[in-house]
C-alpha cells in the first residue's frame, strides 16, 4: 500500500494516529503510549496492513523534546514499511511492551531499556543485555558523555584540508 493510503487507513481504523509524515518515501506515524499496543496489534492483524516482519525497535534522544521511540515493521506479504513513533517524556519514560505482539521485540526492548532507561511495562525479562550489572547510566542518552572525547580532542575532528598539511 502507498504511504498516504496506509496512513489514511490507520487513522480511520485505530483513531490513535496523532500525526503522520512521509519523508524519503518512508511513512512515519505518531501515536500515544496508551494506544501503543493497540496500534501494534492492528498493524499485525489487519488484512490491509499485515506487518508480519519485526524489523527493529529503538529510541532517539531529542533532549528537551523527550525520547522518540521508533518501531519499524515491514510486511513481507504487502511489501510496505512503517515507522511507528511515540514521544516519551524525559522524566521516567515508560511504554507498554510489544513483546506480546511480536516476540522479536523482547531483545530490542531490553536493549532500549538499558541504553536509554526507558521502561517497558509488562516486559517478561527486563534485564541488561549488553552491560554489566554494575554499569551505571544509560549510554545512548545525550547527557551520557563519552569520557575519552571529553578528555582529549579526537584527531578525526580535523577538516579534510588539514590532513594535507
Amino acid at each position: 500500500m502507498k504511504a498516504a493510503e496506509l496512513s489514511q487507513h490507520l487513522k480511520e481504523a485505530t483513531g490513535a494516529i496523532e500525526r503522520d509524515e512521509v519523508l524519503n518515501e518512508q511513512l512515519s506515524v505518531w501515536t500515544t503510549s496508551e494506544k501503543w499496543v493497540e496500534v501494534a496489534t492492528h498493524l499485525r492483524d489487519c488484512g490491509k496492513c499485515m506487518f508480519d516482519y519485526f524489523t527493529f525497535l529503538s529510541a532517539v534522544d531529542f533532549e528537551d523534546e523527550g525520547f522518540e521511540i521508533v518501531l519499524h515493521v515491514y510486511s513481507i506479504r504487502r511489501q510496505h514499511h512503517i515507522n511507528v513513533k511515540l514521544t516519551a517524556p524525559r522524566e521516567n519514560p515508560s511504554v507498554p511492551t510489544l513483546s506480546g505482539v511480536w516476540r522479536g521485540a523482547n531483545w530490542h526492548e531490553r536493549e532500549t531499556w538499558e541504553m536509554f532507561g526507558i521502561n517497558f511495562e509488562g516486559h517478561p525479562h527486563l534485564v541488561k543485555l549488553y552491560l554489566t550489572e554494575a554499569f551505571e547510566g544509560n549510554p545512548l542518552r545525550k547527557d551520557f558523555l563519552l569520557m575519552t572525547r571529553e578528555a582529549k580532542e579526537w584527531p578525526g575532528e580535523q577538516e579534510p584540508k588539514e590532513h594535507a598539511g
Binding site: D52, Y53, F54, W102, G104
Partner: peptide
C-alpha cells in the same frame, strides 16, 4: 511465521520458505 516474528532474515528466513531478499523486493 516464527522467523518473521523475530525478524530473522537472510538465509535463515529464506530457508523457512520465505523468499524475502531486499535485492529483489
Amino acid at each position: 511465521s516464527v522467523a518473521k516474528e523475530f525478524g530473522c532474515s537472510g538465509p535463515i528466513l529464506q530457508a523457512s520458505g520465505i523468499a524475502e531478499d531486499s535485492r529483489k523486493t
